[in-house]
Amino acid sequence: MSGLAFDDDGGAIAWWEAERHNLRAAIKQAERSGLWEHSWQLPRSLMYLFHLRGCTTDWIDAYGIAISAAQRLGNEEAQANLLHELGVAHYDLEDFDAAARYAAEALLHFDAIGDRRGRGEVLIALGHALISARRYDEAADPLENALEIAESLGDGFAQGLAHNALGLLHAECRRFEAAFAHFEQALRFDREAGEEMGEGFALHNLAVAHLDSGNPDEAIENHRRALELRRRIGHRQGEAASLRALGRALLASGDVAEARRALLEALEVLEELGQGEAAEVRAELDALPTP
């Protein structure tokens, strides 16, 4: 027996969208039937699509079942990966304390099985959570440790993640030259690895740093690049973030009409996703200067 095959990513995403509710029911049925391997493997196989399409509530619900199943099986590796990814889901909901807590739990499991690659990736997630919680002094050590691990393993994908996070840390602390250098490194590693979602994040963060450093034209250019890429790969939550940030950059450049257009498009995507950020975007639209 072989699995489903699709001609391209778009076909896979369309199938998942059509079968999403059936897949959610299958996860719950596996749990009720005591099929513990299926109960953690099926949610984890869907993680990328949960993340890509912004279905964070489904993601968290499915991972609650998955972690319980992995605990029943005593599967340390599964628990490590699931806790790491559950932290990412909470990060997407801007629950940064929960994101940091799950990252710390995942670290214990990765250390127990001696998985340095996993440890490095979780340290990056922990760093992001600490940055977003404005705990900048605490974020530097895990991120620098993560970069050292990635370099020692020759892991270009992880080096891209680490450079992106370090760039974000420096940008938040207004050390823009250091931030730009890390973002350029992140883009290089992401492109070499063909990691388009990571490239989208790096472009987005680079654009925000340009705006914060007083260069709205560079910000607009990089936001447009990120937006084009995110639309192409179907990263809906990223698309909304790029549109919202593009609106801010356009407003800073004095183009109120285009800023309004970008924010309206962001609002449309967020409403489709059922994201609470939609209310914030409405407030930004209301605050725009009238024509």
Score class of each variant (00 low, 15 high):
A209V: 01
A240E: 08
R175T: 05
L153W: 07
G234Q: 09
E31A: 15
G154Y: 04
A240L: 05
F96T: 06
A262H: 12
L35E: 13
E148L: 14
R135Q: 15
E284W: 00
L4E: 08
L123S: 12
L187V: 01
E151T: 15
L126I: 02
C173L: 15
D8P: 11
E196K: 14
W59F: 12
A78V: 01
E277P: 06
E94N: 10
G234K: 09
P291S: 05
R72S: 10
L108G: 11
Y102V: 10
L270I: 06
W40E: 04
I27M: 00
L250S: 10
E77D: 14
L46G: 09
E284F: 00
F183P: 08
P289C: 07
E192W: 01
E284D: 08
G238C: 10
A89P: 11
S45T: 06
W40H: 15
H84N: 15
H235Q: 09
E196L: 15
E94F: 05
A30Q: 14
G11A: 09
H109P: 04
L251D: 09
L227E: 02
A162H: 03
F96H: 13
A125K: 07
H210E: 01
K28Q: 11
R117T: 11
L93K: 13
E144A: 07
Q275V: 02
G194E: 12
D217G: 00
G167D: 07
G154H: 06
A14G: 04
L4Q: 12
R231I: 01
R134Y: 05
L250M: 10
R174Y: 04
G214L: 02
G64L: 02
A125F: 04
E172F: 05
G238V: 02
S253K: 14
E105P: 11
A266C: 12
E17P: 03
E177R: 09
A99H: 07
A257E: 15
L169Y: 06
L285R: 02
L46P: 14
E271I: 04
Q159I: 09
I13K: 14
L52F: 04
Q237P: 02
A181G: 13
E218S: 10
D255C: 07
G3A: 08
A283R: 11
N145P: 02
